[in-house]
Design a protein around this nucleic acid. Structure first.
Lengths: 165, 165
DNA sequence: CCGGGTTAGTTGCAATTGCAACTATAATCC
DNA sequence: GGATTATAGTTGCAATTGCAACTAACCCGG
């Protein structure tokens, strides 16, 4: 949306417009996308986003521990714990304790969990395809690459304010 | 070794790897960035993200109603209501009722609110600069443009099924 | 094997959020 | 004008989340 006849300088600091501020834009896009996607599977399968992530990871890498799932999904261990608890209640994930270390869970999808995965993947892919349909193939791979670099950088900048670079 | 049949990706559903799934990546990046940024100002100014957004918008466009703020920040009206309440409590935002329509608020920053804005903007910009420092100038503007197009598209795709907008 | 330190995972509690119901004001239609 | 409908914003409640404390199991030096 075009601003009005702006520059009502409440300040001598160069104005910061939210619409052009990257963190804000990432947040808006991510929320829009997540909401749309969740709408596609939450109702149908009674799945939360954390639960879907756990399923997606376990489908590809059966036998992970909860901590390993947390690492791969960028979720906090509490979130994983609760997602797994919910999935077990519904018979979508099975947990056994590792023989060599009885603190550690060994998580796998049940047949029902795998079935949910198989049903959702096409929906997820279709959404992604429609979204990326906005961009041409070259643009897609470029965007992909730029995103990866920003991700890496954001990780280096770290959660604790400034320092590091 | 479990004698069970290991779940092998199976039935012709092409595997979906979270690491390459756009919605997931957007979410991770957005969360990392927001957390880093919040760390930079939340502690120093006791400001939540919604509150910061309200301030940022009002600095540029004083006199907006709560609904207008909600629209510009992509926040829900309840979030705006609570952010404004918190900001008023701290004397950072002032509200009067519109003469022509006494349901509508007219929101402006107080001197203290404007001061907070002036202090945060450089921090926010610095973070953004360091993040985007990962990319060259041409890449930055390209990324900017691609992001805008994806945002537009995600908006069009909307939350599937029932909802607003 | 005993104690200090570490890691895996769960639970309790407080803060955040989202939704729906509610109040108050304004606009519209007959 | 009076009833009906719509809009701005707030509040209550329930569900989600995040943090920290906790339990349980392992590890290592003596």
């Amino acid at each position: 949306m075009p601003a009005k006849k702006p520059f009502v300088p409440t300040t001598d600091v160069p104005a910061l417009e939210l619409e052009h501020f990257l963190p804000y834009r990432l947040s808006v896009l991510s929320n829009t996308v997540s909401a749309a996607l969740a709408g596609a599977y939450a109702r149908r399968f009674a799945l939360t986003i954390p639960q879907w992530r756990v399923i997606a990871v376990l489908a590809r890498a059966p036998g992970l521990s909860a901590a390993a799932v947390a690492e791969r999904t960028a979720m906090d261990k509490v979130a994983v714990s609760r997602a797994v608890a919910g999935l077990m209640r519904k018979g979508r994930v099975r947990r056994v304790l590792a023989a060599s270390d009885r603190r550690r869970s060994v998580l796998t999808l049940t047949a029902r969990g795998a079935s949910v995965y198989r049903q959702i993947v096409p929906l997820a892919r279709a959404y992604e395809r429609r979204l990326l349909g906005e961009l041409g193939p070259a643009e897609q791979s470029l965007f992909d690459q730029l995103l990866a670099r920003l991700q890496k950088r954001s990780w280096l900048l770290g959660p604790s304010g400034d320092s590091r670079v």
